[in-house]
Amino acid sequence: MSKRIEIKDLDIYYGKFHAVKSVNMTIEPRAVTAFIGSSGCGKSTVLRSLNRMHEVIPGAYVDGQVLLDGVDLYAPNVDPVRVRRQVGMVFQRPNPFPTMSIKENILAGVRLNNARISKSAADELVEKSLKGANLWNEVKDRLDRPGSGLSGGQQQRLCIARAIAVEPDVILMDEPCSALDPISTLAIEDLIKDLKEEYTVVIVTHNMQQAARVSDQTAFFNLKAHGQPGELIEMGPTEKIFHNPDQKATEDYITGRFG
């Protein structure tokens, strides 16, 4: 499953602080969309607003719409818990549950909401998810070992496997490689390219080569000035953004003449 996301006039606030101003964009299914921009420009906030994870910070709220195949995630009758089941997330630092084995980590999402799963179905799902995250061959002999015993890159792929085990429509990645070495990064990037066959993938990254390598569409965010809300400056095919952007600010950022 893979769904289209449309963001319409989205403003995001943390209490009185206006973090992001009037974002409009369409994120295509079966594609990778990268958010780039300098620190504090609101790209992670926008990403987190796509599965309402920014709401874990008290006082956070939005004004505007985020439509997932036409359904507004912020409609009054929408349960954020259900939103997060459909829109999975991978974080900056690998965060497998340290108290669980590799297998239990994969099943963590499936076992929520009182769902029951037979042992054979569970084994099947673990294998499928780990294969989907290119991790199966490395861990198939130690599924009952703690997930925290894996290397950083393996842990991050475990987190991806855990996210896809619940069969979401969208996978959000918040700088998924920034804590990893180059080889692990490459493994994750290969995986991202595979994931877009089935999912809508949105990735925030500080690494512009990474954005250029993995994404189909790129969105550039920026601040007008310190203390101002972040804004979407420009969005388009990655090729165009990196070689022929419409906006001066985008070009400055891409070419490193920024700030």
């Binding site: 599965n51 994870m53 874990v56 818990v81 259900r82 997060r84 089941r85 999975g88 997330m89 974080f91 630092r93 965060n95 497998p96 549950f97 340290p98 963590a108 999402g109 929520l112 909401n113 987190c159 855990r162 996210a163 619940v166």
Partner: peptide, 17 residues
């Protein structure tokens, strides 16, 4: 760690879960 709490919430856990 906030990371573990967020990992759980992002999987669609309720607060109690």
């Amino acid at each position: 760690p906030k990371l573990h709490e967020e990992a759980s919430l992002a999987l669609g856990a309720t607060r109690w879960e």
